[in-house]
């Protein structure tokens, strides 16, 4: 049983990584990052069940709170970027090229 939850968790994480790497839209990239964090959360819950301790639940809750704070800032940045260029495609933002 634990394997299934873990496979799903890793699959979500990998989908998130893939989304961050391949997608060009800033909004979708942030969604992919949230997917990564939630993949980890699922793993925490599954392992809490396995270890029969509440630690995993608490950790997942804390990660969710942090993810919410991060999303709030990310949305503000997205609005800021949209105000400047009217688009959210990462190709449009090319002032900084390291």
């Amino acid at each position: 049983m634990i394997e299934h939850a873990l496979y799903l968790s890793v699959a979500l994480f990998c989908l998130g990584v893939l989304g961050v790497i391949t997608r060009r839209n800033v909004f979708v990239v942030f969604m992919a990052i949230e997917l990564m964090l939630n993949g980890a959360n699922l793993g925490f819950i599954a392992f809490a069940r396995l270890h029969e301790s509440m630690d995993g639940h608490v950790l997942a809750l804390l990660v969710m709170a942090v993810a919410a704070a991060e999303a709030a800032l990310a949305l503000a940045v997205i609005i800021l970027l949209h105000k400047h260029k009217g688009k959210l495609d990462t190709n449009v933002f090319n002032l900084l090229r390291g």
């Binding site: 994480f13 964090l37 980890a40 925490f44 270890h51 630690d55 991060e70 940045v77």
Partner: peptide, 27 residues
């Protein structure tokens, strides 16, 4: 705005790796 976009995206991305790592260690 571009600097913060780059920093925030990559920072949050690496944060995702950290949480996943912490989950594996916990497991």
């Amino acid at each position: 705005a571009e600097a913060v976009l780059k920093y925030l995206m990559l920072g949050a991305f690496s944060g995702g790796f950290f949480v996943m790592g912490a989950m594996f260690v916990y497991g």
